[in-house]
Lab assay of single mutants.
Amino acid sequence: PVYLSVKADNSMFIGNDPVTDETMITALNALTEGKKDTTIFFRADKTVDYETLMKVMDTLHQAGYLKIGLVG
């Protein structure tokens, strides 16, 4: 499974590897070998604001990742 996490300080990680807004999709493409039907499990600290969550989800959708599971 692929886990994308947003921490309380808005830092992002794919698994244990830090990513930025600019590198997130490139890292996901490498990890999933470009398979856009891969489910991305998205988790965020409860203090992360809604705007940040939606920005990340919008970026995922624009890149073609449509299977996003929200996890606690």
Rank of each mutant, 00 (worst) to 15 (best):
N10H: 12
M57P: 00
D45P: 05
A44T: 08
S11G: 05
V6S: 01
T20N: 09
K7D: 07
L66I: 11
G72P: 13
G69I: 15
L28I: 12
M24H: 01
K67M: 11
E22K: 11
M12D: 00
I25Y: 02
M12F: 06
L53V: 14
T38N: 05
K67G: 04
K36M: 08
F13M: 09
D9T: 06
M24P: 01
I68E: 01
D17F: 13
T39A: 10
K55Q: 07
S5F: 15
L28T: 01
L60R: 00
R43I: 15
D17G: 05
E22H: 07
M12Q: 02
S11I: 10
E33T: 08
P18N: 06
L4Y: 01
T38Q: 08
M24D: 01
E33L: 12
F42T: 02
I68T: 05
D9I: 04
A30G: 06
L28Y: 00
P18K: 11
M54Y: 09
M24Q: 01
K7S: 08
F41S: 03
F13H: 05
L53H: 03
M54A: 10
S11Y: 06
D21H: 15
G34L: 05
F13T: 07
P1L: 09
D49N: 13
G15R: 03
T52I: 14
L53M: 08
H61R: 15
M54Q: 13
Y50G: 08
I25F: 03
F42K: 00
T39P: 14
G34T: 04
R43K: 11
V19I: 09
L4I: 15
F41E: 07
M54H: 09
T26R: 09
M57H: 04
T38K: 06
L66R: 10
G34W: 04
D45T: 04
K7Y: 15
V2G: 01
L28A: 01
L31Y: 09
T39G: 04
L31T: 06
T20I: 03
S5E: 12
Y50A: 11
Y65L: 01
F42N: 00
D21A: 15
I14D: 01
G15D: 08
G15W: 04
V6F: 12
P1Y: 14
F13V: 05
T32W: 03
L53I: 15
D17A: 11
I14Y: 02
M12I: 14
T59M: 15
E51F: 11
N29F: 08
A27Q: 11
A27V: 15
E51I: 11
D49I: 08
V71S: 10
I40R: 00
V56G: 01
K67P: 04
E22G: 08
G64P: 00
D58E: 13
N10F: 10
Q62A: 14
P1Q: 09
Q62H: 09
N16S: 11
N10V: 03
T26Y: 10
A8K: 08
N16I: 08
D49V: 09
S5A: 07
G34H: 07
K55W: 13
Y3E: 06
F41M: 11
P1D: 07
D49Q: 12
E22F: 07
G69Q: 15
T39L: 14
T20P: 03
L66S: 10
P18D: 03
D9A: 08
T52Y: 14
V48H: 03
T23Q: 08
I25R: 02
V56S: 02
D37C: 08
V6W: 07
V19C: 06
T20K: 04
D17N: 14
D37I: 03
E22Q: 11
L31K: 09
M54L: 11
K35F: 07
Y3A: 03
V71I: 14
L4T: 01
M57K: 06
I40P: 00
M57N: 02
K55A: 08
T52D: 05
G72L: 12
N10D: 06
P18Q: 12
V19E: 02
N29I: 10
K67I: 12
I14C: 03
D49A: 15
M12R: 03
E33Y: 10
V71Y: 07
Y3M: 09
T59D: 06
G34P: 02
T32C: 07
A30E: 10
N16Y: 07
L70E: 05
T32P: 01
F13D: 02
Q62G: 09
K36T: 10
E22Y: 08
T38F: 07
R43V: 15
D45K: 02
T39Q: 15
S11A: 08
V56H: 04
L60S: 00
M54C: 11
N16M: 09
D17W: 13
A30W: 06
T52F: 15
K7Q: 09
T20Y: 05
V2L: 09
T59Y: 09
P1E: 09
K35D: 13
R43S: 14
N29E: 13
G64C: 04
S5W: 15
L31S: 05
A30Y: 10
T38Y: 07
D37G: 09
A30K: 13
T39Y: 14
S5C: 15
V2M: 05
L60N: 00
G69P: 04
P18C: 07
R43F: 14
D9W: 07
N16G: 09
L4F: 09
L31H: 08
T32V: 07
K46H: 12
I40N: 00
T39R: 11
K67F: 11
D37T: 07
N16A: 11
F42G: 00
N29V: 08
G34Q: 05
E51L: 13
T23Y: 06
N10Y: 13
A27E: 07
L70S: 06
V2Q: 03
A44Y: 14
P1G: 11
A27G: 03
D49Y: 05
K46N: 11
L70R: 06
G72F: 10
G69V: 15
E51R: 12
F13E: 04
M57W: 09
E33A: 12
H61Y: 13
F42W: 02
E33V: 07
Q62I: 07
P18F: 09
T52M: 11
T52W: 14
L66A: 06
T47C: 14
E51M: 12
K55M: 08
I68C: 04
K35A: 08
S11H: 08
V6N: 01
Q62T: 10
T26L: 12
E22W: 05
S5Y: 15
K55T: 06
K7E: 09
T39F: 15
T39S: 06
L28S: 00
Y65W: 05
A27D: 04
N16Q: 09
N29M: 08
E22C: 05
V48K: 02
T52K: 10
L60K: 00
D37R: 04
R43D: 09
E22R: 08
T47M: 12
F41C: 13
Q62V: 06
A63M: 03
S11Q: 12
K67R: 12
M54P: 00
M12T: 03
A30P: 01
R43H: 14
V19N: 01
L66V: 10
T23S: 10
L66E: 08
D9H: 08
I25S: 03
G72N: 12
G64Y: 02
K67C: 11
H61I: 13
T38E: 05
T20E: 05
I40Q: 00
V6P: 01
A27L: 13
A44K: 04
H61F: 12
E51C: 14
A44F: 13
K7G: 09
H61N: 10
Q62L: 11
T20H: 04
P1S: 10
I14S: 01
F42M: 15
K46M: 10
L4Q: 01
T59A: 13
G34V: 03
T59R: 14
L66W: 15
D45Q: 04
D17E: 14
V48A: 08
A63L: 04
A30Q: 11
V6H: 02
V19G: 01
I14P: 00
